[in-house]
């Protein structure tokens, strides 16, 4: 499981002085930079997240726009994955997790009673840290979502969706002759692209990626990054990453988190060349993280 699902132990490690987390967070001051965009696809406003009694996210504001990649960076346990998992309510599966504040998709509150998590997750897809293809054939992996939601009218439709999704994920040429083989027989990078294809097949509007390359080698990583750039044409994308280079390469905007607080957000170029907050600068220059 993702190490950042429960960020509390690392929060405690970071807490070197006598201060409580709340005091440290308060000392960080307001978010530097502009978290809002003109035409947001998803919007996060003043969101707090608690695991039981401990708070993991403190009053975060952030927008995600269409045709844009937003990257979320920060040291381990800074809450970036937690926030990402709130965006399609994956945190619902953790019983002790509580979310307050407003998160919207196309202006609709995704935590309201009327919003259905199943429908939300069909519209907001997610790619996980470790490639997790189902132990089924490649075809079945991609066809899984459309079948669930009944997106195809007939078998030919489904074939179309599978082939298109595999093409969009840039893996079609590698697997077109072995669609019947198990998804787990592919290499790590291929598996991750298969998972992306699986997500695309549900025709989502937003794609969330949780450190999608952390388990891959550099060549596979390069391919995925290329793919992310292409996908930007059709989807709004949010990506959590540990690698600053990756954030710089694939994203248009970058958000820096520290101890559950959004410290600085802005154009990727600006953040990396001219960080305004001291912590951001320290992190980017590699003093910690």
């Amino acid at each position: 499981m993702n190490e950042e699902v429960n960020p509390l132990p690392s929060l405690e490690q970071d807490q070197t002085s006598e201060q409580t987390i709340e005091e440290i967070v308060a000392s960080l001051g307001d978010t530097v930079g502009q978290p809002r965009v003109d035409d947001p696809k998803m919007s996060v406003s003043n969101v707090d997240v608690f695991y039981g009694k401990k708070q993991a996210i403190f009053g975060v504001d952030l927008d995600i726009a269409n045709n844009e990649v937003v990257s979320m960076i920060g040291p381990s346990g800074c809450g970036k994955s937690t926030l990402l998992r709130c965006l399609n309510r994956m945190n619902d599966t953790i019983p002790i997790c509580r979310v307050s504040g407003e998160l919207t998709l196309d202006g609709e509150d995704i935590y309201s009673k009327d919003t259905d998590p199943v429908l939300l997750r069909a519209r907001v897809g997610m790619v996980f840290q470790k490639p997790n293809p189902f132990p089924k054939s490649i075809y079945e992996n991609v066809a899984y979502g459309p079948r669930l939601h009944g997106l195809n009218r007939n078998k030919a439709d489904l074939d179309d969706i599978v082939v298109n999704s595999l093409k969009k994920a840039g893996i079609y040429n590698e697997v077109k002759n072995r669609l019947d083989e198990s998804g787990t027989s592919l290499s790590g990078g291929q598996q991750q692209r298969l998972c992306i294809a699986r997500t695309i097949a549900c025709s989502p509007e937003v794609i969330l990626m949780d450190e999608p390359c952390s388990a891959l080698d550099p060549i596979a990583t390069a391919k995925i990054e290329e793919l992310i750039d292409e996908l930007r044409e059709n989807y709004a994308i949010a990506i959590v990453t540990h690698s600053m280079q990756q954030a710089a390469r694939v994203s248009q905007r970058t958000a820096y988190f520290h101890l559950g607080k959004l410290v600085e957000v802005g154009d990727t170029d600006t953040i990396f060349t001219n960080p305004r907050h001291e912590l951001t600068e320290n992190y980017i220059t590699g003093r910690f993280g």
């Binding site: 499981m1 399609n88 994956m90 599966t93 199943v118 429908l119 939300l120 997750r121 069909a122 519209r123 897809g125 997610m126 996980f128 470790k130 997790n132 293809p133 189902f134 132990p135 899984y144 979502g145 669930l148 939601h149 998972c195 699986r198 997500t199 549900c202």
Partner: peptide, 18 residues
């Protein structure tokens, strides 16, 4: 069965029983 499997499926919008 690893939790990642369940996450993958839930993340695609499957219900728990699915």
């Amino acid at each position: 069965v690893p939790q990642a499997m369940r996450d993958g499926s839930l993340g695609l919008g499957a219900t728990k029983s699915e």
